[in-house]
Design a protein around this nucleic acid. Structure first.
Lengths: 335, 335
DNA sequence: CTGAAAGCGCTTACAG
DNA sequence: CTGAAAGCGCTTACAG
């Protein structure tokens, strides 16, 4: 492994000067720049980012806390986040917090991340968060007072969906949530549904809303199970909101297996607009937001704050958009 | 940020002794152990893994080079790899090499990864690989002589599939490959199809095999486009092998849009057994292997070699398994 | 068994 | 503008 000292030696300058030409932080006599560059080339020198991190007390490392790695929705957002970050020399790594979590909390703290983005649905332990704060880690999606918060405002699209279902004559409309009953209402989608369903003429029975309390299940499985329960107590349901696209896929599977058809018997709506939704049969109606903008703007805010801790934390609201596709149709009783 | 020196001071011992109790490498008088532990607790001390890495010249960091982050197949394998690695204090980070690749090659080298797993379909530059080798990075899925290689042996399942299609009376069978025509034959699936299709009584027309040369497309889109071409020159095709499940989803979408039905008109087979396949309509027939075993065994080999560079590189062969589901049916001309 | 000290490969004031 | 040197927070022979 060739080090900076060897480069300096070969170029006939000091280590500090080599640093200066590599980091372009100070003016260096062109002749030296030339010599250093040549030495780097000849020795095939690669700087050690680790050593740099230690000296600068900054890692250029962004972490992402995730519960399910197989949800393409997160993968898409992360992809854009990573792209933006990578162009600015930041590395992003994803930490799967679905098992052995205590150990992973430790690891995350030991790695001295510059920032951590929280894409979990469940809460993270208080002392873990405190440690991160004491390390000056820039936080995203924790408490609004000490982190950036990105909220996807689904209220408009949700209203649009509800209007659509009403116009299509649906009355018996259910809601399948992949999170538990407490959090369910905190979510804009759930809140809106609960608040407005009477107004839109939908059946207001409590057991048309299903929540999930088993944290270990993946979304598809949640949708599949909840839809099973739903169909057994409300076989005449004609439309189902699902909290995300994977839940919707699970619901559609159960519908098919029950000998019903989507959208002929039951319309299904998802959320997130993952790329595969369009490939389903029927293509999934869903609502979403600009994932590129979402990912990139998280990265942008993070980097701004890392490089200038004076930047205030703020809440970013991202508007949503409805994608109407084949999985929604007129209520069969109206045709 | 509290450092090891402060812990040592508070515990009334030296820095080295603190290291010894943390790393459990040497015997320390129980009384000291107690005092050090208390000091750590009281000061809320968190070791700095970065500094540790610099001193040990090892990072406990495994990288994964990936082209598409949205393929759940890789996500699943990586998830198991990560789980195994995390339990042994290794961090794994995924590098998306779909754009700005030169910069990312640099970043990867600068981060001094202990290992790099290659999940790309296209080749990586020679000098990048050379640099990694000179850094003693443990390699997976590069050249067999200087890396571990994990091959999924699909030959048995592929034969099983072909036998099945023959028994179901299919004659006009196509193959959609997400990689280019050169690599196509190097893959066990493609090789087997090409070699045996005559023997199974399938039509041997060259234009029943479609390859993809546009590296920027995602698998679903590749399947969709190739299937479009296929249907326009062979509208009477009755079965399609797809190189992976996403390609199959794309093909199924095109089939539906063309007014045909899967499996009534055309049977479709995928590969990888991604979780969503079962949720499709119809559920996708596919072949796969044990992803947990696959991911964990990569991690195991890597860690063994990192911790003992004497371990020889080897090739690991993983057998495959057929999952027969609704997307395959008897040829309609035989019913 | 424990402590003092050198070393890991960088950055960054500070003199000159 | 450049070099010498201290420092980042650890590990690890080596004395004692």
């Amino acid at each position: 492994m060739v080090t900076r000292a060897e480069v300096a030696c070969r170029a006939g300058v000091s280590v500090g000067t080599v640093s200066n030409v590599i980091n372009k932080k100070a003016f260096v006599k062109p002749e030296y720049v030339e010599r250093v560059k040549r030495a780097i080339e000849e020795l095939n020198y690669v700087p050690d980012f680790n050593a740099k991190s230690l000296a600068r007390r900054r890692n250029n490392h962004i972490g992402i806390a995730l519960f399910e790695m197989t949800n393409p929705y997160h993968a898409e957002v992360i992809q854009w986040l990573e792209k933006y970050a990578a162009e600015r020399d930041y590395m992003v790594t994803t930490f799967l917090l679905d098992n052995n979590t205590d150990k992973k909390y430790e690891v995350i703290c030991e790695r001295r991340l510059d920032a951590l983005v929280n894409f979990m649905t469940n809460d993270l332990p208080r002392n873990f968060i405190e440690t991160l704060k004491s390390q000056q880690t820039v936080l995203v999606n924790f408490n609004p007072q000490d982190s950036f918060v990105v909220v996807n405002d689904y209220s408009q699209s949700m209203l649009e969906c509800m209007r659509l279902l009403r116009d299509y004559g649906h009355k018996k409309v259910a809601y399948l949530s992949s999170i538990d009953s407490l959090r369910y209402k905190a979510d804009k989608r759930g809140e809106m549904f609960l608040l407005k369903r009477g107004e839109f003429g939908f059946d207001c029975a409590d057991d048309l809303i299903f929540c999930n309390d088993d944290y270990m299940l993946h979304s598809e499985e949640i949708g599949y199970r909840l839809c099973g329960k739903l169909l057994s107590c409300h076989p005449d349901v004609t439309a189902i909101f699902c909290m995300n696209d994977l839940v919707a896929f699970g619901a559609m599977r159960k519908i098919n297996e029950s000998g019903l058809s989507c959208p002929h018997d039951v319309s299904v709506l998802g959320c997130d607009d993952i790329a595969l939704g369009e490939y389903f049969n029927p293509p999934l109606t869903t609502m979403s937001f600009d994932k590129m903008k979402h990912g990139a703007s998280i990265a942008k805010k993070i980097i701004e704050k890392i490089e200038n801790s004076e930047c205030p934390y703020e809440t970013i609201v991202v508007g949503s958009e409805l994608k109407l596709r084949g999985s929604v149709a007129k209520c069969k009783y109206e045709r």
